[in-house]
Amino acid sequence: MAGRLLSMRALAPRVTLGSAAMSDMKAIIGNREVVGFGYNGQPNYADRSDFPLPAIRWKENTPDVLALREKEKGDWRKLSLEEKKALYRASFRQTFAEFKAPTGEWKSVIGCGLMLISVALWGFYGMKTFVYGPLPHTFEEEYRKAQLRRIIDLQINPIQGISSKWDYEKDEWKK
């Protein structure tokens, strides 16, 4: 896709707009050169890996940049490495490696998540300690055993329930 975009940029390096649109656009982008359509047709700049060719150049045209642009029209072997880098930085803010590098934002996300979990656990503990009363007596072990025995004695749900697993002749659980 990048190769196709580069070829499209080479075929149509300049965008022509009407005079009214051009004056409005110049108020927004200043002295920067419009070099393509962009990812949405607007004269804006964004470092994007899915659309690597922004509509405008990163830096405004200064005398230094204009001199380098004239020099780049000639033989590129005559340009020094610093001049090539300056030309690149005039067109793009960051390299792919720079804007795709990890930012470390995950650390703050994990930290905030752990802090929220901590607050929730302290809230739960505080509610359990100071707000909720003691459990009712029906949660005690002997009461629950008596309730299970009553369910079995009354043969509640004898087809598929607890009573179906009780052997009434041997008075024990079925094996």
Rank of each mutant, 00 (worst) to 15 (best):
94 Q>A: 15
123 G>I: 02
95 T>H: 14
98 E>W: 04
18 G>P: 00
67 A>Y: 07
149 R>T: 14
123 G>T: 01
150 R>Q: 01
128 K>N: 09
104 G>E: 03
32 R>S: 05
56 I>G: 07
32 R>V: 08
1 M>G: 02
72 E>A: 15
73 K>C: 04
34 V>W: 04
98 E>H: 14
36 G>V: 00
166 W>P: 01
170 K>H: 05
36 G>S: 03
78 K>W: 07
171 D>Y: 04
7 S>T: 05
37 F>K: 03
151 I>P: 11
174 K>S: 01
59 K>W: 12
94 Q>Y: 15
121 L>H: 05
127 M>Y: 12
155 Q>H: 05
141 E>R: 04
76 W>R: 13
140 E>Y: 00
112 C>M: 12
28 I>E: 14
106 W>R: 14
106 W>T: 15
104 G>I: 15
74 G>T: 04
70 E>R: 13
152 I>A: 02
159 I>V: 12
162 I>F: 04
29 I>E: 13
149 R>I: 08
133 G>K: 01
26 K>S: 14
117 I>G: 10
102 P>N: 06
140 E>F: 03
146 A>Q: 10
29 I>A: 06
139 F>Y: 08
125 Y>R: 14
79 L>A: 02
135 L>N: 14
95 T>S: 15
119 V>Q: 08
132 Y>P: 00
63 P>R: 07
86 A>M: 03
117 I>H: 09
45 Y>P: 06
172 E>Y: 04
89 R>H: 02
99 F>A: 12
43 P>Y: 00
39 Y>V: 07
172 E>M: 03
169 E>M: 05
136 P>K: 13
96 F>L: 15
120 A>I: 14
81 L>G: 13
78 K>Q: 06
47 D>V: 06
123 G>M: 04
80 S>W: 13
70 E>G: 10
9 R>H: 07
91 S>W: 15
46 A>N: 12
71 K>I: 14
112 C>V: 15
110 I>Q: 12
30 G>K: 09
91 S>N: 10
173 W>D: 07
139 F>V: 01
109 V>Q: 14
74 G>D: 01
153 D>L: 09
19 S>Q: 10
81 L>T: 15
107 K>C: 05
56 I>K: 00
152 I>F: 05
79 L>D: 12
122 W>T: 11
93 R>V: 13
124 F>E: 14
4 R>G: 10
75 D>V: 11
112 C>H: 11
144 R>T: 10
66 L>G: 12
119 V>T: 14
134 P>R: 00
165 K>V: 07
28 I>C: 00
116 L>K: 02
73 K>E: 13
99 F>R: 10
159 I>Q: 09
154 L>E: 15
7 S>Y: 06
134 P>Y: 05
107 K>M: 12
129 T>P: 01
140 E>L: 11
87 L>Y: 10
149 R>G: 07
66 L>Y: 00
79 L>W: 02
97 A>P: 13
110 I>G: 08
27 A>Y: 01
104 G>Q: 01
74 G>S: 09
9 R>A: 10
49 S>C: 06
139 F>G: 00
148 L>Y: 05
102 P>C: 02
145 K>V: 01
3 G>A: 02
106 W>K: 13
88 Y>T: 03
